[in-house]
């Protein structure tokens, strides 16, 4: 093709199929050559002009605060606001030695593991079933994904109603089994409510991705699998699940970040600033120390620790997925 008419309205596949798109995304790593086009404009100033707004915002609202976080993590702020003094790594050692912090870190790990596990497995189960049925497929899909649009604190509010001491149906239900649930007062009950709400909120996301991953598996592969293996369950474990592995791994990382950070709204609504006897996660602790406790240095040190965790997760994601995605 020598001349593509300028009026041609269709670009090359604006929306490639779901799973294909997912993998394409991972191929687009920064290691890839950034100048993909054979022909480009040559202009000394224009690209900077186009980039200026984005870069300005990134510098003011991303790099500046990030550098500040790192910087103030090495300083101890005077409680009365009269300057601050350099304390080296003291903030970090204080944080890492504190039993309270380590307890919260432990809870965060358990919370993250449980939320990730349950939201992934329920999402996968529903996706497999929705992929299998023909009748009502679209209706199921619509009804199952809408919770995605709910903000975490709104989900938290709904959860508070369900677990309400007076009117909550879930509390009454638990009462039938002799479980006296006291969300907000009892540590374990509160943790339970947090996990239930967080899982509920995340199921649709996993459902969407698993379903589009399943639909990306070619019909020929499925048919071959059916011929080779009659047992549906075994077919799922030996053929379908390995093919879904890249999607699952991607979701594992996303769900981990979700449980670590995005659940803030859920936790805030359930705990309501009173962390006293309630379980909280590391992000919530950063917030509490920074805004309620006015401990700038400690809060910053915790921020930096979280930054490192995210950093490691992201690097892990890129390294690992590179090896995992072997087809397509």
């Amino acid at each position: 093709m020598t001349h593509a008419p300028l009026s041609s309205p269709t670009p090359a596949a604006p929306f490639p199929s779901g799973a294909g798109g997912l993998f394409r995304r991972f191929k687009a790593r920064p290691s890839e050559d950034t100048s993909a086009k054979r022909v480009q404009f040559n202009s000394p100033l224009l690209p900077y002009l186009f980039l200026a707004p984005q870069m300005a915002i990134i510098f003011i609202f991303f790099y500046w605060p990030s550098v500040q976080a790192i910087q103030s993590s090495f300083y101890l702020e005077d409680p009365f606001g009269f300057g601050s003094s350099f304390v080296g790594l003291a903030n970090y050692t204080d944080v890492l030695k504190s039993n309270e912090y380590l307890g919260i870190a432990r809870f965060t790990a358990v919370f993250t593991a449980l939320v990730t596990f349950f939201s992934l497995s329920i999402g996968l189960l529903l996706a497999v079933k929705a992929d299998g049925v023909i009748r009502g497929n679209a209706a199921y899909k619509t009804l199952l994904i809408w919770v995605y649009a709910i903000a975490p604190p709104v989900a938290g509010l709904m959860g508070m109603m369900m677990f309400d001491q007076h009117i909550g149906p879930l509390v009454k239900f638990a009462g039938l089994f002799g479980w006296e649930m006291k969300v907000g007062l009892n540590y374990n009950d509160t943790a339970f409510a947090m996990i239930v709400v967080s899982v509920w909120k995340q199921i649709p996301y996993n459902f969407i991705f698993f379903l589009s991953g399943l639909q990306g598996i070619p019909v020929s592969v499925r048919e071959a699998a059916i011929m080779d293996c009659r047992s549906g369950l075994r077919r799922f474990w030996t053929v379908i699940l390995p093919l879904l592995a890249p999607t699952a791994f991607f979701l594992l990382i996303i769900n981990t970040t979700y449980a670590l950070f995005d659940t803030f709204g859920v936790i805030d609504v359930i705990v309501k600033d009173k962390a006293a006897n309630n379980p909280i996660t590391l992000v919530y602790k950063v917030y509490m120390d920074g805004f309620r406790g006015n401990d700038l240095g400690g809060s910053s040190a915790q921020s930096v620790i979280l930054m490192i965790i995210v950093f490691v997760l992201t690097i892990f994601q890129f390294r690992f997925i590179e090896r995992r995605v072997h087809y397509n």
């Binding site: 920064p30 950034t34 100048s35 690209p47 980039l51 984005q54 870069m55 990134i58 003011i60 609202f61 991303f62 790099y63 500046w64 605060p65 990030s66 500040q68 976080a69 103030s72 970040t257 950070f261 995005d262 803030f264 992000v283 950063v286 917030y287 920074g290 805004f291 700038l296 809060s299 910053s300 921020s303 979280l306 930054m307 995210v310 950093f311 992201t314």
Partner: peptide
């Protein structure tokens, strides 16, 4: 181009939640 790309890419690594306090100060 390359360094700009990397500077933009880095923003994906750190969610707002980990830098709330300094962002608020700014």
């Amino acid at each position: 181009a390359t360094i700009t790309f990397w500077m933009i890419f880095t923003t994906l690594l750190l969610p707002l939640e980990v830098r709330i306090l300094p962002s608020y100060e700014v």
